[in-house]
Amino acid sequence: MKVLSFIRSLLVSIAGCGLLSACAPGPTELVVYSARNEEHIQPIFDRYSAQTGQTIRLITDDAGPLIERLAAEGRNSAADLLITVDAGVLWHAAQLGLLQPVDSPVLKANVPENLRDPGNRWFGLSRRARTIVYSTERVQPAELESYESLTDAKWKKRLCLRTSKSVYNQSLVAMLIAQHGEAQTEKIVRGWVANLATPVFANDILLMQAIAAGQCDVGIVNTYYFGRLQRDQPRIPLKLFWADQQTAGTHVNITGAGVTAHAPRAEAARKFLEWLSQPDAQAMVAAIDLEYPVSSAAPADPQVAAWGEFKPSPLNVASAGELQPAAVRLMDRAGYL
């Protein structure tokens, strides 16, 4: 009897799941799979809905599971648009054939060539730089120069890094491989590891707090993490230094989006992407998490603008994806945990 009642309750819950999945999106509702947090994206959706009447359904998860889900759903997927952070992830989704090319003069005009897929399957929506942060109490900016210069012996036991598991570090090393080749990049990474003051950190905020507390003097972080910390603690004795200004330019990464391969509402998705690339929306997209707009016509948030102008790396961010597996292996070899 117990077994029977268990089976009955199992069947009831299965039927419940079936009912839930019947709540399919309406024929015109745009379905967005997003690896960005809801708080960073919902206000933008709300504005678009208010302006155009287009309703949007948001499904958030980590990038990996979203990509696997898209692949598993195939032609039956309800998703129209995939939004993620990190160019490597977008490159990977495009490689798997999960995104379709969008031929749009508006997107081409608004998104610089190096911040979109050469095959037009994904487009950058906002930019973030990964650069050097230093203690204003113990470091002079004149002592700093490039990512490579952090391998110098004068930084012995003064460098803090985030884990190599962070996709941002994987992308940074991938871009270094694109610039310097594998052998030289491995030397750089080994140099960093030799200069570490303490085991690598799980995130950028802990890293910056360690610099502020005096555990180390320099580190490498994403600009918006610095912005968040600065917003919470305006007096924190840290500053950003733009790396590689005399050479290739500072490493940038993107938040970006692409129309899914089997999007039921591909046309509506394209329109939304175009709207996101317009200066108006760009200012909002960038300011919401202290990033830089991709469109040069849009202004940066005043707090972000105060960090100064910098020369970004002109390399196409797609290389970050292409070279990411090589970067991960290189970091494994170099003992960068």
Binding site: G64, K165, V167, V328
Partner: peptide, 8 residues
């Protein structure tokens, strides 16, 4: 996790 997301 690293094999999946780092090395695809």
């Amino acid at each position: 996790y690293r094999a999946w997301f780092g090395m695809f």
